[in-house]
Computed example of a mutant assay.
Amino acid sequence: MGAFTRHRRSQRVIANFTGFEADLLRSLASQLVELLRNESAVPREDQDPFEAMMDFSGPTSEPEDPVLARLFPTAYPGDEEAASEFRRFTEGALRDGKAAAACTVIDTLEEAGLPEQLSEDGLMIDVELDEPTAETWLRSFTDVRLALASRLGVEEDDDDYWLSLPDDDPRAQAHDIYAWVGYLQETLVDALSR
Rank of each mutant, 00 (worst) to 15 (best):
Y178A: 02
F56H: 13
R145F: 01
R12K: 14
E155C: 04
D160L: 13
R151S: 03
Y161M: 03
H175A: 02
V154E: 05
K98A: 13
Y161L: 09
R44D: 11
V67S: 06
D169M: 09
D130M: 07
R6V: 00
S57G: 15
M124A: 05
D65C: 01
L146F: 08
P77W: 05
A134M: 02
A29Y: 00
S57N: 14
A3F: 15
E85Y: 09
L24A: 14
F20Y: 09
D23I: 11
G92D: 11
L118M: 10
L24E: 12
E128H: 07
A149Y: 11
R139Q: 14
R151A: 03
P170M: 04
A134Q: 00
G2Q: 01
L68F: 02
Y183L: 07
S27N: 11
M124V: 12
E135N: 11
R87W: 02
Q173S: 12
M124L: 12
D65Y: 03
R95V: 08
D167G: 10
S140L: 04
T60E: 14
F20R: 10
Y161W: 09
T142W: 09
Q11I: 07
E91H: 12
G97M: 14
W180M: 06
S193F: 08
T18G: 13
A82S: 13
D65E: 10
S140K: 05
R26Y: 11
D167W: 03
A3D: 07
T18I: 06
A174V: 04
A22C: 05
F4L: 03
V127M: 07
E85L: 13
Q173N: 05
T187V: 13
L192D: 06
R6F: 03
D48T: 02
L36Y: 00
Y76Q: 14
D157F: 10
S30P: 00
F50E: 12
R171W: 10
S193R: 06
H7S: 09
G2L: 09
E51W: 05
D159A: 15
Q47I: 12
N16C: 13
L25G: 05
S164P: 06
T108M: 10
F4T: 01
D23M: 08
D126K: 10
D107I: 00
D160N: 05
L94N: 06
E186A: 14
E110H: 09
G153M: 06
V13I: 15
R171I: 00
A102I: 01
A69R: 15
T108G: 11
A147G: 15
M53I: 00
I177L: 15
I177G: 03
D48G: 04
R95Y: 04
L163N: 15
F72I: 05
E64Q: 10
S164L: 07
R9T: 11
A75G: 08
R8A: 10
D158K: 11
A172G: 13
P66M: 06
A29S: 03
S61N: 05
D168Y: 06
L138S: 03
R139M: 13
